[in-house]
Structure formats: structure tokens, C-alpha cells
């Protein structure tokens, strides 16, 4: 299901920071937490497409730089009461190298699917 791509070393990403991996399906944000876990999400906030890689990492969460939605790094789910989800990708750390798994079956749309936005109550 996944194609695995070597993307660099753990130390290429600052703790509590993130870097972008450019893929044919769009940018993927790779995050490193304080406890050195690494997570990857599509670099588009489910709210209005903000670049999640530019946000603030805290615990296992990321705060979007545009309007402060908070998402779980592990699942991409927005923290309640916001509703939405950013696609997440598996990351493996092997011998100090990071590997990113990209789905090779379904190709990703290049813009946020409209229905995601519609699914949220406008307040």
C-alpha cells in the first residue's frame, strides 16, 4: 500500500518544529515532538488550508498558524469542538534515518475537498 521514501535524519527537524517534504501530491509536513517522536500530516489545515508546518508544536499536537485550530499529530483529527481532519502518513525511524510512507493507490486531490468545509457548522 505504501511507498517508503527516505526523507532525512531526525536532527534535520528541530525539536518542537517541523519541515516540509514536497511530493507530487502536495506538501507533507513532518513534525518532531519534544519526546523525539515524528509525525507527518498533509500540510493543509482542514479549516482554511493553512500551512500546518508553520504552526506551533506542543505535546502531540499542532496549532495552525492561521486561526489557531489545534490538531492531533497522530491522527490529523481536529481537537474538539472543531471538526475536521488532515490526512496523516506513517513515518519510520530506522538507524537515525526517517522514512515517509506515501499511499500509492489513491492519489490526493490538490486542494482541500470542499465537503470538509461544508461539514463544519458555520458560526
Amino acid at each position: 500500500m505504501y511507498d517508503w521514501h527516505e526523507i532525512g535524519a531526525l536532527d534535520d527537524i528541530p525539536r518542537l518544529g517541523s519541515r516540509v517534504v514536497q511530493t507530487p501530491h502536495g506538501d507533507v509536513a513532518v513534525f518532531r515532538t519534544a519526546d523525539d517522536q515524528v509525525f507527518a500530516l498533509r500540510d493543509r489545515c482542514p479549516h482554511k488550508g493553512g500551512p500546518l508546518s508553520q504552526g506551533i508544536v506542543h505535546g502531540h499536537r499542532i496549532t495552525c498558524p492561521l486561526h489557531n485550530w489545534v490538531l492531533e499529530l497522530e491522527s490529523g483529527q481536529a481537537v474538539a469542538p472543531d471538526v475536521g481532519c488532515a490526512t496523516h502518513y506513517p513515518v519510520r525511524l530506522e538507524n537515525g534515518r526517517l522514512w515517509l510512507g506515501l499511499n500509492n493507490v489513491v492519489s490526493l486531490p490538490t486542494t482541500a475537498p470542499r465537503n470538509r468545509l461544508k461539514g463544519r457548522v458555520r458560526r
Binding site: 521514501h5 527537524i13 519541515r19 516540509v20 517534504v21 507530487p24 515517509l100 506515501l102
Partner: peptide, 11 residues
């Protein structure tokens, strides 16, 4: 410098 460069280009 890491802020301004992508980590990697794949595919």
C-alpha cells in the same frame, strides 16, 4: 536555514 528549505523532494 531549516526554516526556509524543504526537507526533501520525493517522487
Amino acid at each position: 536555514a531549516h526554516e526556509f528549505q524543504p526537507l526533501q523532494r520525493v517522487g
